[in-house]
Design a protein around this nucleic acid. Structure first.
Lengths: 125, 125
DNA sequence: ATATGTACCATTTATATCGATGGTACATGT
DNA sequence: ACATGTACCATCGATATAAATGGTACATAT
């Protein structure tokens, strides 16, 4: 695990963590099933808050890149590479953009879109 | 035109304007094709900024409730009542929600959606 | 004891956006 | 001259959110 955090970067620390761990899995620097450093251990190594590492781990788990096993620690997901390689981001971007373009063509303003989007993601319907 | 603006309301002024004008059209207080007070005139009457009234008028025109005819002034849309029942915001919300629901079903995370959405609206593609 | 992930509580800083306001200016017409 | 809608420019205050930080505590295990 050679993770480098750039404090001056505009990219959030938890994102840098996610990206580098994902990259390590993709390039086989981290094998599927391999043990990850513990949250506190990595936080101490990189001199960042443990909650920040916990956030990155939690999101990576949601993305099926890693798995948390309580007191046993965190591990690379058995099928992590399958989820790393799938470029759902590009497809999602295009789908979302198509809808937004359609709505804006009907005159929906950006602020209206932001409000609607925010309400949907926070389940405030 | 009996429009009452409540400054202490959490509802924005431009929204109050839109709602009350729509209501007047629905209840035949404002007939289709009838002339509306000019932007500056209404702004002066209600003691609000003309840009705020202009914003409400612009959105009402988008919603086919009113029509602007340049130097001739603003008028109730000839088929305004037909469009009074149509809520552009609701329609946009439903369209957007359908897309988001589809993306999330495919495993797209909220954070990925937020990033994509933000990038699309700011044209940073 | 010590370590694991995790779940709460909270504050701070920075950034973004909203809503409203104001000014200036333009072409168009009466 | 005067009024119409409209398009820019801008500022201000309030609000919301993101990101990171810190503290405390819990059940679970070695």
């Amino acid at each position: 695990m050679e993770i480098v955090i750039d404090i001056d970067s505009t990219t959030p620390v938890f994102t840098q963590l996610m990206e580098q761990i994902k990259q390590a899995v993709s390039s086989d620097g981290l094998a599927e099933g391999a043990a990850l450093p513990s949250i506190r251990q990595l936080a101490n190594e990189l001199d960042v808050n443990s909650k920040t590492v916990a956030k990155a781990y939690k999101l990576l788990e949601r993305d099926n890149i890693i798995q948390s096993r309580g007191y046993r620690g965190s591990f690379v997901h058995p099928e992590a590479k399958r989820y790393c390689g799938v470029n759902v981001n590009e497809w999602a971007h295009d789908e979302l953009k198509a809808t937004i373009t359609k709505l804006k063509a009907k005159g929906v303003t950006d602020s209206e879109l932001r409000i609607a989007f925010s309400n949907i993601l926070s389940n405030k319907d």
